[in-house]
């Protein structure tokens, strides 16, 4: 029988305690056990980026962590981001710029973008592309996604400048 382990962690701001099979990866656990199907399962070997989510505020692959490993850690999925006012501007920019078509890559793309925007610094389009290079999108050609992220980045930098946070 598959070995089980107890985990206690924070999921989108709420403390959760569960028993999980040790061989189950994080994204399967979130989808199957927690009912959070926003994080998508693509390649299951870390290449496509569809399962990317935030663990302790860092973007990681949900298919390359065991659920057992999030014991004591904090997980934020796209369901959590949807409720997070701090990233409203990003979600709105994705809609305004048509930065998604089928939407399969979007939860992972957002997790990567949230991390990129956390400590805003001026970035060229090429740098933004490099930052999202681990997230595959087969619809948009990336242009609209770079537009959306770039728009939010510019706005946040301008706000910081207005607040005197940067020289």
């Amino acid at each position: 029988m598959t070995e089980m382990t107890e985990i206690t962690f924070t999921l989108n701001g709420e403390t959760v305690r569960r028993s999980v099979p040790v061989r189950k990866n994080l994204v399967d656990f979130l989808r199957q056990d927690m009912g959070l199907t926003g994080s998508h399962v693509g390649c299951e070997h870390g290449v496509c980026g569809a399962c990317t989510l935030l663990v302790d505020r860092r973007a990681v692959r949900g298919c390359l962590m065991l659920a057992a490993q999030i014991d004591g850690l904090s997980v934020q999925t796209v369901e959590g981001l949807a409720q997070d006012e701090a990233v409203n501007d990003l979600l709105e920019a994705f809609v305004a710029r048509n930065a998604l078509q089928c939407g399969f890559c979007t939860p992972g793309m957002l997790a990567t973008a949230v991390e990129l925007l956390r400590n805003p610094r001026p970035m060229s389009r090429a740098e933004i592309r490099e930052q999202i290079s681990g997230n595959y999108c087969r619809c948009t050609g990336y242009e609209a996604i770079v537009d959306a992220i770039g728009t939010v980045l510019d706005t946040r930098l301008a706000n910081m400048q207005a607040d005197g946070e940067v020289a």
């Binding site: 990317t52 973007a59 990681v60 991390e115 290079s133």
Partner: peptide, 12 residues
């Protein structure tokens, strides 16, 4: 280091 995979992989 920038040649090592992608940012989400480098985080972990």
């Amino acid at each position: 280091l920038p040649y090592v995979a992608h940012s989400a992989i480098r985080n972990r």
